[in-house]
Design a protein around this nucleic acid. Structure first.
Lengths: 351, 351
DNA sequence: GTGAAAGCGCTAACAG
DNA sequence: CTGTTAGCGCTTTCAC
């Protein structure tokens, strides 16, 4: 009997875990037949199938995904690129992506983007050329990663803003928070506030962020003065620091914040300045994160369907990967203003 | 010239991305030499090295990690198994692991555990037998995953409790929150509270959790009554629901909570019951999450060094993988009680 | 139905 | 220093 190069591992089983060859040998069939049983595609006689399955069970055999992918097998795995797993928006989006992907039988890995990661780093994260990727591009690092991705990788992204018409990229999803910001601003104006101040989260691009834009839209439409927007980070602390001066000014009666964490910091700063919420100052957030309803006062905020967005993003990718079998991309909820205790009528003495 | 089976890809470059063979062909060297240049280990003449590097740059060649791993190359990648990326403890631990791993040149992937995932699912997540893994086992899903891992995988875990002496597993790290819970409880007793109630987070094992244990330790040592602990989930909402009845009882003057989110819900429930914090009721949390200092009132809580724990966990794994080159495992900070506004002296009328 | 062959892209062990 | 060979474990062809 001639032992060719294509029949490795024929000798005593070393301490390496069982391969498809080991199973084949024990089951008394060819390696290919085992492969057929595993993948269930091709037809195998019932008798053989049962026998092979039994041996697989006995030996505790698990297929090696690396080898399968290398050999050009169907892959069904996605990598999510995101820069901060602890921020509510990103975490909720991730959760939606993860659920949808797992439901569709995809395994999902996450790779965390560092603030300073460049092009090279991003390419480095892919296990193989052509690996499917989703990007959470709510911040600069995410947008940069999206841009740095090699052209051949199938990608879908959750982005902060609608892509420009000209460079329209069909593989992106976003929330219409421009309209939502305008809505929240109009709501505050309707309460009698002369104008509304805005504390922004860091923007993902050099252009004006959607939320800032929507806030401006509403102010201009109502012919109100447009104060200079303030710039915060993502944390309560950054919100606190950003508005310490602003909240001391009694003519400031309404502040819209780029997220709920900033709003928390703003409320703290306001209290320390001796201002009552909502009596002297109304504060509105963005996200409707889990704590929002339990804060003191509970926070009026714009609810954003990040999880639905994440699900939709995966479905988009799925359709891109196999256009025929993937289900239609589901809709996600529109942003919605949730009115709670932190906002109220403008104080009498205003003006 | 004979073309053997070991020289594939010799013909016209198809639309597949460049392989090591393509680079070798263009650079006029053997495929192995290219491999040597890439890995930098073996010695290559400066001239050849430069030439190869140049061709790599020109062709935009990127090594295929799958193939490298399959061929038994050095791997330098870790997979983190965790069940909830949005909870502060897990997220902060993850961050620590991620930073330490990337610093050491490891690429890190994350795989999210579903609450119901069983043994099979866990094995399924590994790309290859023997892949390095870290587990964040603060909850039941994490502990189950840790137990379900095949014995041959190199693993280090961040766990909720010190392993039993008998089954001592050296590849685990944990925070001493038993002592911290006892400390927080003693602090409340020292303020004159007759006893302290405890609202627990879900436990990761069937045994008594460390925090619960520490709370009991302190109460018993002070010969105080030990109330039945309440059981919450992880969210503010679950804390709110769990204590709605309890906070209505004026004899309850101090509640220790398993995390800051629960404490938030408790404070809300207390306010709605008309009780002042800290005047009528003191509330203490666990974690010192970013919002804690900005809540109203700001939250007295136990600061836990999750990030340091995550870093230490990676170093443990690193030492396990290559005992000679890995740096020593760094220490992480001890838990520390941070006193803020939510706790104060027991009300006069107590008793 | 089943088996044998060829190769995915790379590293490791040997040659020279 | 460099080239050749033999795999890693699997999925494709293609034969029978």
């Amino acid at each position: 009997m001639e032992v060719t190069g294509h029949m490795p591992n024929q000798d005593a089983p070393r301490s390496r875990s069982a391969s498809i060859w080991d199973v084949a040998r024990v089951a008394g069939v060819s390696q290919q037949t085992v492969s057929r049983v595993i993948n269930g595609k091709a037809r195998v006689s019932e008798e053989t199938r049962v026998k092979v399955l039994q041996v697989i069970e006995e030996m505790g055999y698990r297929p090696n995904k690396l080898a399968r992918a290398l050999a050009g097998g169907p892959v069904r795995s996605v990598t999510v690129l995101t820069s901060d797993t602890s921020l509510y928006g990103a975490a909720a989006t991730l959760r939606g992506m993860e659920e949808a992907a797992r439901t569709a039988g995809f395994s999902v890995g996450i790779s965390v983007l560092e603030p300073g990661s460049g092009q090279r780093d991003v390419a480095e994260r892919l296990n193989r050329p052509g690996e499917a990727v989703m990007v959470i591009a709510f911040d600069a690092a995410g947008v940069r990663a999206l841009g740095a991705l090699p052209p051949d990788v199938p990608v879908a992204a959750a982005v902060e803003r609608r892509p420009d018409i000209e460079t329209k990229n069909p593989w992106q999803v976003w929330l219409d928070d421009r309209a939502a910001a305008a809505h929240a601003t109009r709501y505050l104006l309707s309460l009698g506030h002369p104008t509304v101040h805005y504390l922004a989260i860091p923007s993902s691009t050099s252009e004006l962020p959607q939320r800032t834009q929507g806030w401006m839209d509403a102010l201009r439409a109502a012919e109100r003065p447009v104060p200079e927007p303030l710039h915060g980070g993502w944390s309560p602390r950054s919100g606190y620091l950003a508005v310490r001066d602003l909240v001391a000014d009694p003519s400031v009666t309404a502040i819209l914040c780029g997220n709920d964490d900033l709003a928390l910091g703003v409320m703290r700063a306001a209290r320390e300045a001796g201002r009552d919420i909502p009596g002297d100052l109304s504060v509105v957030g963005f996200d409707d994160s889990p704590p929002a309803a339990y804060l003191n006062p509970s926070l009026t905020t714009v609810r954003l369907d990040f999880q639905g967005l994440g699900r939709a993003c995966f479905n988009l990718l799925h359709r891109r990967l196999d256009p025929h079998t993937a289900p239609a991309v589901p809709a996600w909820s529109e942003p919605e203003l949730i009115v709670r205790e932190s906002s109220g009528p403008a104080p009498r003495s205003t003006g």
